[in-house]
């Protein structure tokens, strides 16, 4: 962690997040250590509830106030977790573009699209957008009749159009980082390809640094240089490709569960966040040994860019 010099990296250092419950607190993330390097597209994958979204919320400084948070996230000389949100908003938000999960409720229902673009522009101290600028970026995303779209309310547009608009909003201020929360969720194959195409286009043209939260393994292969595999609030593996270079039994189980590989399910059973006496994947793991049930593995380095939390690679 000490050798991080480039300040536009996201450097997550011993991050723990728990949400206090009426009975006891729910550990969502435990001891996350990872560096998202500027200029590199990273994907965060893992099953629902493994903490992917919370990790990204933490990166953006958007965790709810009642969350109990330990650790640090360094970005530009700021510790995102400890500076007031107003400072994040005035200094950092313009560096970050967010593509939210469900387009239909991510826009103000009674404000015209153009005005919502301008709201973002003004806060990035960029001022109003000219129609031509927006035309360019929306046309490149495959939309037509831009003038009408800009004067429309969100409910007058289709889900696919809204998604592209949100995409354009995320990148309209030329951010250094783009965060996409399940950008291909619930889309048919054709729209999925369009999204993947747009992300690739964005990556080659403007913003190289991305963090994608997704369940879409092929998408990670198409776009990302780094894949972070999460399970039960922990990072299980950091690799460059889950297909060709996935080592952790969980990663391999995910690949085996894909339809093209025969839909092999991961053995069922409770997933427990927060227990530290055993490997969290051990109850479901085909390779689990006695050691896995009695001690907790660290994140072992296989090579420079590749880390695995498994005793098999210790």
């Amino acid at each position: 962690m000490k050798d991080i010099q480039i300040t536009s990296d996201f450097c997550v250092d011993h991050l723990c997040v728990a949400f206090p419950n009426s009975m006891k607190s729910a550990n969502v993330l435990s001891d996350i250590n990872v560096v998202f390097r500027h200029g590199i597209a990273a994907a965060v994958i893992g099953e629902s509830g493994c903490g992917k979204s919370v990790l990204v919320l933490a990166l953006l400084g958007l965790l709810p106030k009642y969350a109990s948070v330990h650790g640090h996230i360094f970005y530009n000389s700021f510790d995102v977790l400890s500076v007031p949100f107003a400072i994040i908003q005035s200094n950092l938000s313009k560096h970050w573009g967010i593509i939210p999960q469900s387009p239909s409720d991510a826009l103000n229902p009674i404000r015209k699209i153009k005005k919502q673009f301008d709201d973002i522009g003004k806060n990035a101290s960029r001022g109003n957008f000219s129609v031509e600028e927006l035309c360019d970026s929306l046309t490149s995303l495959g939309l037509s009749d831009i003038e009408r779209i800009l004067q429309s309310y969100p409910h007058e547009l289709s889900g696919g159009m809204l998604q592209r608009i949100l995409f354009a909003m995320a990148v309209c201020c030329e951010p250094e980082w783009v965060f996409a929360d399940e950008p291909t969720k619930g889309l048919d194959e054709q729209s999925r390809q369009q999204v993947s195409h747009n992300l690739l286009h964005l990556k080659t043209k403007k913003t190289q640094s991305m963090i994608l939260i997704t369940h879409d393994l092929p998408l990670t292969e198409e776009i990302c240089e780094v894949v972070v595999v999460m399970y039960a609030g922990e990072i299980m593996e950091i690799t460059n490709s889950v297909y060709t270079n996935g080592l952790h039994p969980y990663t391999r189980a995910l690949i085996a569960a894909l339809p093209i590989n025969g839909f092999n399910p991961i053995p069922d059973g409770p997933v427990k966040n927060g227990s530290s006496r055993q490997c969290r994947f051990a109850p479901h793991c085909a390779y689990a040994s006695k050691q896995c049930k009695h001690s907790h593995p660290n994140l072992y380095s296989v090579d420079d860019m590749h880390k695995v939390r498994c005793f098999l690679y210790a």
């Binding site: 953006l60 958007l62 908003q89 005035s90 938000s93 313009k94 970050w96 967010i98 939210p100 469900s102 409720d105 991510a106 826009l107 103000n108 229902p109 919502q116 709201d119 973002i120 806060n123 990035a124 909003m169």
Partner: peptide, 15 residues
Amino acid sequence: PYCFIALAHGIQHRQ
């Protein structure tokens, strides 16, 4: 969600 997203886009709470 739309207010939350606006917040993440950097739009001030007051606005």
